[in-house]
Design a protein around this nucleic acid. Structure first.
Lengths: 118, 118
DNA sequence: AATATAGTCAAGCAATTACTTGAGTCTTTG
DNA sequence: CAAAGACTCAAGTAATTGCTTGACTATATT
């Protein structure tokens, strides 16, 4: 009943499962019903529903039920939380260079990476 | 013995634990020994060592033993993997606008967010 | 109305996770 | 050298996770 916010914990934990990431991948092409989502994975519908619930609580997908079919779509709120956290750490860890920033913003120019960064 | 690569699974799973994120937070100020790392948390040294191992396998920290003390420092490789994954999804999900990209690269200019993005 | 669809709910189960405890191993240090 | 310090290792445990099965509830379809 309660809608639960997309906390950092929930977002990263949700993204830490490959099936769940594959679900997001599939939803990238556009909204899909739960049963169609379940097709490519070798698991039961019930299992997929559980994954969708985790993703929903993490703010990574939104769902909506019309008639008997529940349609899932991407929700960017969760990714935003993750991206924000990473961006924050980046500013602390690597104050003086925009290395990760460059990577995230423009994957094109690979500014030469100082060796000491690891 | 084998060094294990920072896979997406390992990175996100590692980041999905608040104690582990707190450890990273602490290491942001600079390299710290395992026992000094353990101080602020109400858990045993052994538990902290286990967390450090998870972080190390995820490419989020590097460690080095000199004498009897193991020193931990931030490793940016893991974050890079996570950032890259998020950046990739972003380009698929939100092809036409650089919303998250702006957020990650330049938190300064908050380009007005279309409502339909969620 | 009868049947099939699409999903929901509640147990239950095996594997993983986040710890703990307790013993053992190297380094320092007094 | 003896004792303390800083881990290291191996078990063990309680909670969580990813999944299944089986029963049940709505909503189409024929």
């Amino acid at each position: 009943m309660d809608k639960k916010e997309p906390t950092i914990d929930r977002v990263f934990q949700a993204l830490g499962d490959s099936t769940r990431r594959a679900i997001l991948e599939k939803l990238s092409d556009g909204p899909v019903s739960v049963s169609r989502l379940a097709e490519p994975f070798g698991i039961t519908l019930a299992a997929v529903v559980q994954h969708v619930q985790v993703l929903e609580e993490a703010g990574l997908v939104q769902t909506q039920k019309l008639g008997r079919v529940r349609t899932c779509r991407i929700d960017s709120a969760g990714l935003q939380v993750a991206a924000q956290w990473i961006a924050d750490r980046r500013t602390v860890w690597e104050k003086k260079l925009d290395l990760l920033g460059d990577l995230l913003a423009e994957p094109d120019e690979p500014a030469d990476e100082p060796e000491w960064l690891g």
